[in-house]
Design a protein around this nucleic acid. Structure first.
Lengths: 234, 234
DNA sequence: ACCTGAACACCGTTCAAGT
DNA sequence: ACCTGAACACCGTTCAAGT
């Protein structure tokens, strides 16, 4: 009551690129990426929107900067975890790195969408890929195969995949199920798959039955195993 | 001079959802997805922006519809190509389907970005996945493995991958190369890779050296081969 | 040097009004 | 039934002005 109802941001701390980027992440974490507007961002910082332009060129630069902070978070998480980093053991090293990156992406579900829209590759991101490349090279990959490997991993190298069947927001699973069964003639295989899975699973399973973590690891291991066979074949 | 400078759209043909969607695709093809605004779309159709809302609920519905038209194009392209469709030969069938889908995506480079932002899965898209599922099932996959397979393919099932290193727009390849060499201490593996590749290739190779088609097929075959090994293992 | 108020040129969308 | 003009509530961004 005694204090003013201003946002929590301390008016003493001067604005900086760093503060702008971290505030942007906070806004996106709280309200989703579509809630991240220059005006909202300024409000979060207790400042007028136009003041932001003294620290970032424009909104695109904010999004570019956010990605770098995100990659930085991955690097930090990797530094915190005590990995032996055996040069020969490229597969577990790679696997761990990617699963760690995935943890960061799960903390910021909007981040993949931002990363996908970036056109330029920042130095920070190049350093990240340079390290992945290093792991592969030290593990016996030719440059050629390592290059193919990074392409084959694609966005998985950064810890996310494009989920085409997203979690159905309405969560009315029974209705979805009923609707699906009604279309059994049009979607016989999908309906068949769902019937089988819902009988097998012990918990209540329906459209929300995909175990994202398990699927991510399945796809990742499929790729890593395939690559391993290629390195070993020479 | 005699005729008015109105857009080419015939004012006789009444507006319809179909016309709106095809005009939207034309706008995006010509000016990119960011040029697709309701006002621009109306202009393309020789109509006021607000008239569109009699045929589509809102802009999101336009984007949803576009995706369905896109999937329809894939289906048409597949129907045109005479495929024997041997039930047992799931791998070449799958491969052909996906590469055909990729051709459509290459014709509409903005389409992947639109697909990625869709939250609901339309009936058209479900039918597409139902067919992929059918190919796998008839090829000997269990529902469980077929499900994993679709997740592992991810957006590749629709003919695109998330390219994290996009074509560098500025095309000043020599400058890029020089800059990279300058960072050899920070990016030793990337620089090493580029040096090797640029020596091997016969054409002028630099940052624009990735053969997207070859990389797509590499990743696709890596996945399909991995799956094949799993089906055969039972 | 850093921040601001007002303004500009856009968006998507609503609504009452036209035919 | 179908289309429209004007308006509303937003955007990102520019610019001259403040301190």
């Amino acid at each position: 009551m005694a204090t003013e109802t201003e946002p929590i941001a301390q008016p003493r701390v001067p604005l900086s690129r760093e503060r702008v980027l971290h505030a942007a992440i906070a806004v996106a974490d709280e309200g989703g990426i579509e809630s991240l507007t220059m005006r909202k961002l300024a409000e979060e910082l207790g400042v007028e929107a136009m003041s932001l332009y003294h620290h970032v060129a424009n909104k695109e630069a904010v999004l570019d900067g956010i990605v770098d902070v995100m990659v930085g978070e991955v690097d930090e998480a990797l530094a915190d975890s005590d990995t032996p980093a055996d040069p020969v053991e490229w597969k577990p090293t790679m696997r761990k790195r990617i699963l760690t990156a995935r943890e960061i992406m799960l903390r910021h579900p909007w981040a993949p969408g931002v990363i996908e829209t970036r056109t330029a590759v920042s130095l920070v991101l190049m350093r990240y890929f340079n390290e992945l490349l290093g792991i592969l090279r030290e593990g016996g990959f030719s440059y050629d195969l390592a290059h193919h490997a990074l392409h084959a991993l694609g966005s998985r190298a950064l810890g996310f995949t494009q989920e085409l069947f997203k979690p159905d927001g309405d969560t009315d699973e029974e209705a979805d199920m009923a609707m699906l069964e009604q279309m059994a003639d049009q979607l016989p295989y999908i309906v068949g798959m769902m019937m089988e899975v819902s009988h097998d699973a012990d918990d209540d399973s329906s459209l929300g039955w995909c175990d994202d973590q398990a699927e991510f690891e399945f796809g990742l291991d499929l790729t890593l195993d395939g690559l391993e066979r290629l390195v070993e074949a020479g």
